[in-house]
Design a protein around this nucleic acid. Sequence first.
DNA 1: AATGAGGATGGGT
DNA 2: ACCCATCCTCATT
Length: 469
Amino acid sequence: MPQTVPRSGFSPPSASQSERAVPASPSDIHHLLRLLGAESPPEPMLHSPPTHNKPPPPYPEDTQLLERLYDFEAYSTPSPSSDEGNIPTVALQPSSPYNSFQYSPIFIKEEPNRLTVPGFASPYPLSPSGSSYSSYNQYSSPVPQHEEYIDIEELLKENQILQDSIQHQYITPKLEVEEPRDHVLLRSALEDTTFQKRHNLRPIPIELGTVKMEESSGGADNDVLVAPDIDRMLSMAIEQSKRDVDNTCTVLGISPDPMQWSASDVKSWVMFTVQHYNLPMVPTEYFAMDGPALVALSEEDFNQRAPQAGSTLHAQLEIWKAARHDSWRSTPWAEQEQPSPKPTPVGLPSAEDTSEDEDSESAGTSISQGGGKVKTGSTHIHLWQFLKELLASPHVHGSAIRWLDRSNGVFKIEDSVRVARLWGKRKNRPAMNYDKLSRSIRQYYKKGIMKKTERSQRLVYQFCHPYCL
DNA sequence: AATGAGGATGGGT
DNA sequence: ACCCATCCTCATT
């Protein structure tokens, strides 16, 4: 049992008692910082089994995990046509949908086929034809491309302002190392590297001298992080993770409550998370289930389905589950503003507790504080432009809408409900549905923006030139 | 039941 | 005027 520290104004969202333990002794911190500063990552066991006696499962890539945590790309913003967003992440795809339609073929990593593992029979076998698996090859894993560089002076300036944040960012992985099993929530929360990505930073060791707190000039040892500071750091890290959850909700158009997810939502979430953390591709057949079923899976279940990505997926799901029950839940998720230090929304009765979250997703401007904005985009966007935006982010929306024939502007709406939901969110039309959306699309026939496909197929539309360019 | 086609109407810009 | 959003009927899958 790790050493614990008195809780002081920090309470992880519905974390079990075992998850509340925080390693905080000076030796721990020193050890962690040393590990952080070292170029070689610590034990490749970010998601190691509960006991240290047990040999770690094979995670071939985990020796580079720490590095990956600083490298992985963030999802792109869904509305490049608007410049109001300021998401502190590096766009995965080209930033504009109007010049980014050719994604180069990218080889993706794939989870080894668990069906070949002796002694394990997956309840979610590949489809008979095996074709459904390959259909996701287009959702390529991100290719690290650090094309964003900033002025060093600007960076230094911001470094000063955000010094606390920086410390959090760098300290987090160590806690994970030290607490491989516990702090499931924190483990994932602390994986956030928004700041690094924003500034194209490499992890650099933080000298303890710079970590000391302004207020702790008294008798406290300069080399010691006092408990409240750690609490504060963890709290901020969790806040960041909440923002990520929130952003992901908006981007994917799914509820923040995994229990509300449909099978399609689960698929989207799995794909997104795998992509987001640069994990090996997971056959979505293994997670062909709805939200409640997914929630019911144990970590072992996750690992069986995805030996390399399972732990992270499970940890991420823990975050979502926890966030669901946290204080910020009372805010309609589609327009959540992140409660910064004070998470108590005033005057907001928690009446709308559960159940109809899926329907309460009124559109919103979604501007979150602190960690950046949820890019919602302009309300005055045209439908055809919006559809192209979604099409331009196959890694995010590929399960909802995708190109069938890019060169001819033929696309298919795979999830009419979600596309309509996203459209309604963008246009601030909570009552939007596919019936109305499709009516608008059909208006394009007359306007020459779209046309009927030669062989009419359900949910398949085609842009006219030059709108498909 | 979900989707497609298209008329009618009204609102917002 | 334009672009939907909404509601509607009827046809098709």
